[in-house]
Amino acid sequence: MNPANSNASPKGDREAILGRIAEALREEAPRHHEAPDKPAPLSVTAPFREWLPPVGKTRKDQIALFAQQSEALRTEFRECPSEAGAAKHIAALAAELGWKTIALHAGELTDAIAERLPKTLAVLRVDSGYTKGALESCDAGLTECESLIAQTGSVCVTALSSGGRALSVLPPHHIVIAQKSQLVNDLSGAYELLAQKYEGGYPSFISFITGPSRTGDIERILVLGAHGPKKLTVLLIP
């Protein structure tokens, strides 16, 4: 790395990271088989909370913050009036980008969307079986989700809600369809929903998607699509 291209001091970064590790190690951790008897103290979490924006009290506030975070993350976020409106937007993307095939899984929302897609767009249903090559060759993947997190602009997906492990990863454009009732304030709210829904019998795969796949490992230059979809679209319906 050329030092002239970096505004940060490697020594300063190293000291900051080691300082955080030392602070965390001062708090006694529970043994692996024991549940913690208290949450992490404010002295540990406060420095990180200040980076997260406050969330308003209304659904409108949640949507506005999620939209703001999506823009910062390069996620396309769009409110649609209905399932038909969401299907219309997907059809417009397909026409604009020259899509030939979209992959999706069975679900209340995805099935409703699939019925309204143009006949010129082939549909690969992963529930009927697929090969890795066929899924990778799809132009987009459409999934449902567990929740949308307003504070971080994240999408929570699981193997059960999103058609398995590969559908949200292999196609280059991931489209998420969600309802307004799935919006939560923060990560704690997302985990609470998972606990209520699965009651300890959690899916084998749980992931929080925060914007398109990205890396900045080389010269701190942001590259999208490094380890997954290059584009992420979130469509919100009532």
Rank of each mutant, 00 (worst) to 15 (best):
A226G: 05
E28S: 14
A86V: 09
L124E: 01
D139H: 13
A150F: 01
S213F: 01
L135H: 12
D139G: 10
E219T: 05
K231W: 06
L52V: 12
L183D: 02
K197V: 14
L232Q: 03
Q62D: 03
G228H: 08
A178H: 01
T58I: 00
G201R: 13
R14D: 12
V126N: 11
D139N: 12
A150N: 03
E34P: 05
R116K: 15
V223F: 02
S168E: 09
V55Y: 02
E71Q: 15
A92G: 08
A166D: 15
G216H: 06
P54Y: 04
S70Y: 02
Y130N: 07
E136R: 14
L236S: 02
T131E: 04
L121M: 08
L109D: 11
P47I: 02
L187F: 14
P10S: 07
L148R: 04
T233H: 02
I102A: 15
F66D: 00
V234W: 01
K88A: 15
I209Y: 03
S9T: 11
R165G: 04
L222H: 04
R125V: 13
I149E: 02
D111S: 14
N5M: 11
T215F: 02
I218N: 00
V155L: 05
A114R: 15
A106P: 11
P47C: 00
R220W: 12
L236K: 02
V184N: 00
C156V: 14
M1Y: 08
L104V: 11
I17C: 14
G216F: 09
H227R: 07
L193M: 12
K197S: 07
T45E: 01
R59M: 06
E76Q: 00
I175C: 00
H89F: 14
T210R: 08
E136M: 13
P81C: 06
C156H: 04
D13C: 10
P10R: 09
S82Y: 00
G189P: 10
Q182H: 10
W99G: 03
A112M: 07
L117K: 03
L121A: 08
S207Y: 13
V123T: 12
S162N: 09
Y202T: 06
A94F: 00
L124N: 04
A87Y: 10
K231A: 11
I206T: 13
F205N: 13
I63L: 01
K57C: 03
K57I: 01
I102R: 13
G98Y: 01
S161N: 09
E144D: 12
V55Q: 00
